[in-house]
Design a binder for these strands. Sequence first.
DNA 1: TGTACATCAGTGAACGCGCGTTCACTGATGTAC
DNA 2: TGTACATCAGTGAACGCGCGTTCACTGATGTAC
Lengths: 231, 231
Amino acid sequence: MGHAGIASTLLDVSAAEEPPGPVSRQERKQRTRQSLLDAALELLADRSFASLSLREVAKRAGIVPTAFYRHFTSMEELGVALVEETTRTLRGLLRGARTENSGYGGMIRASVHTLHKHVRVHEDHFRFVTRERYAGPGAVSRAIAVELRMFSSDLALDLARFDPLRTWPTEDLHLLADLIVTAMLGTVAELLDARPGDTAADERILAEAEKRLRMVLLGVPHWRPEGQPRI
Amino acid sequence: MGHAGIASTLLDVSAAEEPPGPVSRQERKQRTRQSLLDAALELLADRSFASLSLREVAKRAGIVPTAFYRHFTSMEELGVALVEETTRTLRGLLRGARTENSGYGGMIRASVHTLHKHVRVHEDHFRFVTRERYAGPGAVSRAIAVELRMFSSDLALDLARFDPLRTWPTEDLHLLADLIVTAMLGTVAELLDARPGDTAADERILAEAEKRLRMVLLGVPHWRPEGQPRI
DNA sequence: TGTACATCAGTGAACGCGCGTTCACTGATGTAC
DNA sequence: TGTACATCAGTGAACGCGCGTTCACTGATGTAC
């Protein structure tokens, strides 16, 4: 339970290591549930979700395999919970980064840096999500696809505030937003591949990420949504 | 061996189902090897590589588990062979599509359509590669990364022939090429997600893919490689 | 061409192991009176 | 406040199963003479 508790504070889910006084049955249950999530995430640091066994996760969480079923009906259900845990706060952070900055440049810089900080704090979560995104036909991949669509919709909404984009058809706006989300996911994968603690690598990756986004947005004023494109 | 043979003809590796006359020992060995690759690919249609067992593959290929080791030292080695099988011909096809067309528009259209045709013929191969790309720290993911870098280098080379790109620094060129390769991979994933035989869906996905690439390339003439970007 | 030996792809039994899931249980927490 | 009963998170034994890998083997193909 020790290091599992530490991991959970990173997400600020259950802040205190061992709170004072007696604890209700449902509080204890919630803590064991979190231990299972934390244990799974640690094991997923260098493995695929499909290769993870219920017994391993239970063992690492400090419970007997059969007690797992008190919290999740299957490993798949736990995986979906991990996906939700990953995106829970990031969506709000990114929306904030965009609304608190005006102009492409500021928005790009703030978004990239917000993403960077968040990914570095929750590396295991993002490793899990980038790995499982296309991992197969299971509930986990489906949950990830849903979350990404939400990121994309958030972004499309904010992009629509820019003058040349204001008049774009919705589908073109979503195309652009998807392109940006995909590029950002590539950046996440690069960050997770970099040697740990390699600050220079991080800065290079962030610079490249900003450059990529500028390249994409550079074409926007020249795009003709209706009629023949000029290329 | 029956349907395994059929799958292999799709790749044109061993064309005849049962050639006439006696067959040398090494020919037979090569055929069994191909059966193993085909069997693995069929099983991978809706599963992750990590969840695939040596025994399953051997069984489907029609040999006893222990005979597997006559062909590959491990499942991982088989996985790497599958990656090579996937990209073997596509690289040349895409290079051809670009050199036989001039101008962004023609190149984009030809590339997207070439990719589409190839993906549709070899769906299982591409499902495997898109799934395993980020699947973990194994040899398979590493092999995929190497292949993608080669696609990107090919593309950068061809992009350098365009006038505004001719003078770009190499790193910016590679950034642009990576962006395009990533976008194309997204298109592959969309194609594989579409309902089989849904021609309308295919056409929509291809149209979107072309649009995305045009969006990206639209910014090119306005990019300032040196000095401050205008955004 | 015929014979004797070497090679080696594929066989089949056996091993110890971790897997998911079942089941009846325990004992602390919660609730009704 | 005290007692009797209900709830339910966690236990531990047991099951049948598929796994990767070992080993000694078989018998067709290949080679040397």
